[in-house]
């Protein structure tokens, strides 16, 4: 009796949809990524025990080690200029959209940061002070 030879079927991994999957993942990351606005702004955040997780906001005011004021990464010459710019930005905003993240270097003196806090409040913003959790000793 003659035995029939089994036909070998070539084994291939289907990779046709791999590119589609990869691009879907890329789109996911592109949509979810939140690019840092304060890249290049040097500041050491203050630390406190009484901090909690806060929601991110589209508005961020920062003060670097040299006391330069930034609104979403754009430098301002003073608190007055910041106030008028913030006022225009916050004009149509309500509720949590008025939250303004305030990031300031730990060594900045009150005489420098106080006018900035005032400017945010006068412009109609709600200050969310950003810092780090201080480890319990």
């Amino acid at each position: 009796m003659k035995r029939r030879k089994k036909q070998r079927t070539p084994i291939t991994v289907p990779t046709a949809s791999m590119g589609d999957i990869a691009f879907l993942l890329t789109i996911f990351f592109m949509v979810c990524s939140n690019f840092a606005k304060e890249n290049g702004i040097l500041f050491t955040p203050p630390k406190a025990m009484d901090v909690a997780t806060v929601a991110d906001s589209s508005l961020s005011v920062a003060m670097d080690v040299d006391g330069v004021i930034y609104l979403n990464g754009q430098a301002f010459s003073g608190a007055d200029e910041l106030e008028s710019s913030l006022e225009a930005t916050l004009k149509d905003k309500t509720g949590d959209d008025r939250n303004v993240l305030f990031k300031c270097d730990e060594m900045i003196e009150k005489r420098a940061f106080s006018p900035v806090l005032d400017a945010i409040v006068k412009a109609g913003g709600v200050v969310i002070a950003i810092g780090e959790k201080k480890p319990v000793k």
């Binding site: 990779t15 791999m18 990869a22 901090v51 806060v54 991110d56 002070a129």
Partner: peptide
């Protein structure tokens, strides 16, 4: 194509910061 797409994914994974903001509402 898939190689290019995966390279992009790796780029996004490396640059995305999953950082939670700590602070308080004043």
């Amino acid at each position: 194509l898939s190689d290019v797409a995966f390279l992009l994914i790796i780029f996004f994974i490396l640059t995305t910061s999953i950082q939670r903001l700590a602070g308080f509402k004043t």
